[in-house]
Design a protein around this nucleic acid. Sequence first.
DNA 1: ATTTAAACGAGACGGTACGTCACGTCTTCTG
DNA 2: CAGAAGACGTGACGTACCGTCTCGTTTAAAT
Lengths: 204, 204, 204, 204
Amino acid sequence: MTTPRSKVPNAARRSQSSRRAILTAAFDLAGELGYGRLSIEAIAARAGVGKQTIYRWWPSKGAVLFDAFLMLSEGPEGEAEPAALPDTGDLAADLKAVLRATLTELTDPRISEPMRALTIEVAGDPELAALYAERLDGPVREIKRRRLRVARESGQLSPDVDLDVAIDSIWGPLLNRWLLRTGPLTPEYADALVDTALRGLRPT
Amino acid sequence: MTTPRSKVPNAARRSQSSRRAILTAAFDLAGELGYGRLSIEAIAARAGVGKQTIYRWWPSKGAVLFDAFLMLSEGPEGEAEPAALPDTGDLAADLKAVLRATLTELTDPRISEPMRALTIEVAGDPELAALYAERLDGPVREIKRRRLRVARESGQLSPDVDLDVAIDSIWGPLLNRWLLRTGPLTPEYADALVDTALRGLRPT
Amino acid sequence: MTTPRSKVPNAARRSQSSRRAILTAAFDLAGELGYGRLSIEAIAARAGVGKQTIYRWWPSKGAVLFDAFLMLSEGPEGEAEPAALPDTGDLAADLKAVLRATLTELTDPRISEPMRALTIEVAGDPELAALYAERLDGPVREIKRRRLRVARESGQLSPDVDLDVAIDSIWGPLLNRWLLRTGPLTPEYADALVDTALRGLRPT
Amino acid sequence: MTTPRSKVPNAARRSQSSRRAILTAAFDLAGELGYGRLSIEAIAARAGVGKQTIYRWWPSKGAVLFDAFLMLSEGPEGEAEPAALPDTGDLAADLKAVLRATLTELTDPRISEPMRALTIEVAGDPELAALYAERLDGPVREIKRRRLRVARESGQLSPDVDLDVAIDSIWGPLLNRWLLRTGPLTPEYADALVDTALRGLRPT
DNA sequence: ATTTAAACGAGACGGTACGTCACGTCTTCTG
DNA sequence: CAGAAGACGTGACGTACCGTCTCGTTTAAAT
């Protein structure tokens, strides 16, 4: 049984080429112009699309950006994500590798600027934040949780560790320093964060 | 010898009453309207001030907000800051008290909304970020550093702890969760962060 | 074959109701406020229209006023103009009637103030002056020319009279006195101008 | 007995150098920028004068321009005006010479643009118009009147000619065509106006 | 010659209007 | 009927001037 709504566009007729053009344009423009100068008008123009086509399918500029990241995270061909953090048995080494990779992305403006734009939108829009928590942060966090749970079960982490506290302790400082530019993003910094956090989380 | 510049307004003639009215209006409006709806037009109207008076003295909306926080942090009467974190000898207890207090502020929209607005502006504007790092985050960070240095010297922290890494490890996760709303802000969360971080930072 | 331009708005989509509201508001406000206080902001507000809708279709405040007069001169229903000056055979009487009627208009602030505003704009803007000469003054002048040509052919005016000099000689003094308020506008003045000019233009 | 007023500045202390600088700047800027771009701000800057010095002594921008012309018409050294129109006994020739000279001025932008600016201000400001009629147009008109009165008394003009109607008939068309740019300003045009008007004014 | 009150230059101020940009809605036409 | 195109009402932007109002600083008359 379907629940018919008014004003809901028929998703079946949706143009996939327009959708992709919009998301690509949004991502690229965010990288080129930065958060402040990104406008729906510009996205529509770059994508060769009517503005209404954007407003029909997304509630806000941030939602477009959000979907652009979602598309990327699922891969251009719809393939699934890496699905898991590396697990060599050496938790510290694995996490350092992941954080250093993240740090590389956060240092490349082509990736970091769109990410910053999205982050700002999420920070300023509770509804988008909920979506973000569910669809973008959630899956990534689950992957991290999985890796840490393995480590906890193998005794590398204290059995009473709260996995979300653990995740925040490892990634939170990095994201905060990146977003607010309160310090340099060096590999050593990433390593130090991992070392500190893991020492705090391991069994006594 | 000073280097004279052109077009620099004469700060000696600046109206202090207008300045205060603008900063107060900016802070209050940020709290009432949220980041998205805060406009220079509205600040000028609320402050009973011409727009040019804002543009004469501040380069951006974020800079106004920044000064509003600066004014508050220096106290309305120009008095100095609290100057130091509590030091009862029990580092964990002291930090938990501080983080719980911060958490209370971050939970009160009258404080947290302007702070969110400022944070978003800082995140989107590198120049403002530099100012923020120097004038707002800097002094606060120095106070934190001071407390942690005492703890390090008294052997509560490992002697090779980098104080900035320590500060990020303690406060970073909290600020990140607050800004992106990726989880609830509870006293227990604050305590867990302090415990985890301190365990990671203490001598082996 | 038309030569396509960039940034030219699509006239086919133009809102006729907005156009009419703008022109009416401009004319009325010019009459109520006088030239000095007439602003595009006020016209837009009175017309219930966005400022951009004015800027999209008119290059200047004077051009709006100009179109307002054009609309009036063509009649609200698009009908053609009066088409001809009266011709009773008595040229002097006909011209005196016309000049007295003009004088009545120039004495009524509801008509004369918008006209003054338009005249000032025309005086200050060569581009607008060209438009004025072609579209407003031109047709009226042609009507006057027609009446005077008939008079010339019937021997009431000298055969070598330049019709434009004749028109200027009859109407020029009146418009100049009106615009600069250098003297009273009385029916006797109008009659004297006609008598003087016709005496100067009749065959010797 | 003097009538003391409040707020009336002491003219005795007035700086003549500032006055001259202001009037010169106003005239020159009107010639350089045209009516539309002339601002009191720019006059003050060009004259090296505080804005208040302008507002202290003149009620409006038009009044400054007015005084600039007054200063010029009285000569830089305070000498009186030419005082009289030429009188060779040949009225038509004299008037044609005068009108051709006027036409030369109206064709030179350095003179005509400030004159246009003043005329526009006069047209838009009844108070200034009264001042203009009394102090600028008045004396000039009296000179013209004088020349025409002589002609009337010598029988070159009809005894019942109204001198103001005569003046308007001769100069009005020229000024109107100049101000509204409704036709070319040629010497032939000036001659034709004089011929037509004088034919209309001579005894029957 | 010194005092002193004004006019002065400078320019910050509360405003108004400018002309532009982007918003989100809407309407029209095309594929 | 989704989409492209883009005009519309709205509102904020950042700028230019308005006319008023202090500020010191000349400067010329009255001491």
